Amino acid sequence: MNEMKKIEIEIENAIYKIIPKNITEKYINENINNNFYKYDNNAINKALFLPIRDLLERGGKRWRPKLFLLFLDCFGLQKKAIETYFDISAIIEIIHNGTLLTDDIEDDANLRRGKPCIHKMYGNDIAINAGSAMYFLPLKLIEKTHISDKQKNRLYKAYVDEMNNLSFGQAIDIFWHKNNIIPNIKEYLQMCLCKTGALSSMAVRFASILAKKQKEEEMLFSKAIGHLGVGFQIQDDILDIVSKNRDNFGKVYGNDITEGKKTLMIIHTYEVANNNDKNKLISILDKHTKNKDEIDDAIKLLNKYDAINFAKNQARKIAKNAWNEIDIVLKKSKAKQELKNFFDYLIEREI
């Protein structure tokens, strides 16, 4: 078994410490502080942990916890020390999946990772509650980690900061596609920095705190890795258009067109297109269509104005600038080269 596979297994084990297959009295006593009468464990299993585990067990790239662990390595922590923080890596992944669950409800999406979305299977009520729980349940793992109170307080602050950023970014994104607003490129990049960059920033801030970095260093890395998250989002939007393997990608063809999302490709096309093409594109987006011919027409317009290549080049530029910011402060090491390879993978990946 290679090292990366071992790490993936440890991340999974950490996730299921806080999201167990079956709730027990021991779990209740360790994680709930008002066990005065009698919990209906079966209800909690069926209405909370089952839908959460359903989503988590569908897989995913798990790149945010891997990024966290890579940075611990880059910061010079020894292997045994890094292994003590697998539980912290799980926090970021559980929260990320909580955002996906909530996002799918907000978009009334049908598919997530090749299967019906959680709200389609269990209902909106159960899905909303499960998504909310995924933002807070993992914080118990911080409480149980053997670190100083000062470090715990810094971790909680980083969590609050980035969750606020995430909520602001999501609000902006929803407002745009509900109200048929085309932002400019800077506004779009700021939205991505908040929405997608938040959890990658959380990952590196957590690593910085556990490695006992000063606040200034923590925020330097946070800024750079937040921008990596922007590049990742741009690439994800590109894959929504060009990916031929829909089962592996896990979303239906042209999902962002159907949702009317204002991606970088849409914004670029809108800015450079002639009036007829501009109006046609907006008309398709406003319909929130699932008609394949109309989705194809929108994608043809993106191709006509070379929007995919434009977005790809922007993602590469953003990732390169992010890497340059941390390249000068990280010491040369095997871990640093692995981190650079990781950067490249996130931006150049294909499905």
Results as ranks from 00 to 15, higher is better:
F342K: 02
E216S: 13
E93K: 03
V272C: 07
N45V: 07
E83R: 01
N33C: 11
K332F: 00
M4L: 15
I172D: 03
N341I: 04
D256R: 10
D293Q: 08
E106Q: 01
A273L: 11
E3K: 13
I225W: 10
Q337N: 12
H146T: 11
T24I: 09
E187A: 09
F343D: 01
F221R: 12
L70P: 03
Q214G: 13
E348C: 05
I185G: 09
N313C: 05
N164P: 01
L264E: 09
G76C: 01
K120S: 07
L210M: 10
A133F: 10
N184E: 15
K21T: 08
K152T: 08
A127V: 02
A43D: 12
R112E: 05
L199Y: 03
R316M: 04
I308Q: 07
E3D: 14
L301Q: 05
N33P: 14
K21L: 08
E106T: 01
D108C: 09
K5Q: 14
I126A: 05
N179F: 04
M265F: 03
E8Q: 11
M4G: 10
N97H: 06
I11F: 07
K304A: 03
A211Y: 11
G76F: 01
D103K: 00
Y37E: 15
F75Y: 15
Q214S: 13
R64G: 02
K280N: 13
L199V: 10
L339V: 11
H177T: 07
R316T: 08
L193D: 15
R64C: 02
L228V: 13
I326R: 03
I241F: 09
I182E: 15
F136C: 14
K61W: 05
R64D: 00
D54I: 04
L155I: 03
I11R: 00
K38Q: 14
K215C: 06
A319Y: 10
A109E: 04
Q314E: 14
H119G: 05
N341P: 04
I128R: 03
I126N: 05
D40Y: 02
K278D: 11
E259K: 13
L48Y: 13
A203N: 11
E162N: 13
D256K: 08
V329Q: 02
K332S: 13
D344F: 00
D54Y: 14
V329I: 13
N164T: 05
K287T: 03
A211T: 14
L281S: 04
I23K: 01
L239Q: 11
P51Y: 00
I234W: 07
I15E: 14
